[in-house]
Simulated scan of single mutants.
Amino acid sequence: MTRTRAALAAVVSGLLITLASIALPAPASAAQLVEVPNFGTNPGNLRMHAYVPDATPANPAIVVAMHGCGGNGPGFAQSSEFNALADQHGFIVIYPTATKQTAMGNCFDVWSQESKTHGGGSDPASIVSMVDYAEQQYGGDPARVFATGSSSGGMETQALLAVYPDVFKAGASFMGVPFTCFANEADFPPWTSQCVNGSMNRSPQQWGDAVRAAYPGYTGPRPRVQLWHGTADPLVPFQLQQEAVDQWTNVFGLSQTPSSTDQPQPSWTRDRYADSSGTVQVEAIDVSGAGHSLPMSGMAAAAVTFFGIAG
């Protein structure tokens, strides 16, 4: 009996040692998307969701990521790759949800005079309140705040960069339009708008003046701009990609001729516009054959790299 107990004890001991040597899978991330109901001044009546990774450095970067018409913040969080990138690189993601109803569903305001004026109110002011909240509550870095979005969110991205150059360091606009492309709310639906029916063609100077008029007297640095558009977009014409390039290169005082052109992926053609120091201030990526379907796989990572958060 004594020998049997000893043998059994040896077996159990060996089993415990074996189990201890097996690498168990790491626990799943506990970080979750949470709604923030009271984030501050909210003239646009937006909703806010935030994603804060389990591990963030001191003073993490903040990325504002915006959905297209008819969408919402949680949906864009699920369909885009920004949460996974946040886990990887330790930045905070803010997902606003638009509530203004149009013929296209709920869309971000880029047509009202309030949305085109620094401190004017509407959706841009609400988003800046979200950024302030993230800085105060999560320790976000005011010097590393970025904007990105798809379709209506891409349009709002360009609006934020124009109206609040003192808040945003850079932006990546997917399938957006130049700032002030829409004259008013009646001009917003694509099937009636001069902006997206192919007839919008302003000079670079006119486009640049619109940005400068959004914040009169501002002399600080301007946010860098990344522009994405599919060449076969049936909703927001590809032609508007060049109008946006004209606008932002003029804002930076750059030539409309690219400093360099390459293909980071086979279907991507990237034009870069650098200043005299070699810093790329404007970057335009044309996605061959793509419709109204951006961002696609790998594009969010390219945006985060452009921001300087990764890569």
Rank of each mutant, 00 (worst) to 15 (best):
S259K: 06
G291N: 13
S267G: 08
S297E: 03
G298K: 00
G291H: 11
L294I: 07
A302F: 01
Q281C: 09
S267A: 15
G298E: 03
M299S: 09
T279K: 11
D262C: 08
Q281H: 13
S293L: 09
Q265F: 03
S297V: 02
T305A: 14
S277M: 06
T269H: 12
S293Q: 11
P264H: 09
S259R: 01
T257M: 03
A284T: 02
T261W: 10
S260R: 04
S259V: 02
P264S: 10
G298F: 00
V287M: 01
V280L: 07
Q256D: 13
A302C: 04
T261P: 14
A274V: 10
D262V: 11
V280M: 11
A300M: 05
Q263R: 13
M296H: 05
S293H: 05
W268S: 11
T269F: 04
S276L: 11
A284S: 14
R270F: 07
A274L: 05
V287A: 00
D271A: 07
P264G: 12
A274G: 06
L294H: 03
D275M: 02
A303K: 03
S259E: 09
I285K: 00
G298Q: 09
H292V: 10
A303N: 06
M296R: 11
M296N: 14
Q265I: 08
Q256A: 03
Q265Y: 07
S267V: 13
Q256G: 09
V287W: 01
A302H: 11
A300L: 05
E283I: 10
T305R: 13
P266N: 13
R270H: 03
P266R: 08
S260P: 03
V287Y: 00
D275T: 12
A284P: 06
S260N: 05
I285Q: 00
L294W: 04
L294D: 11
A301T: 06
G289N: 13
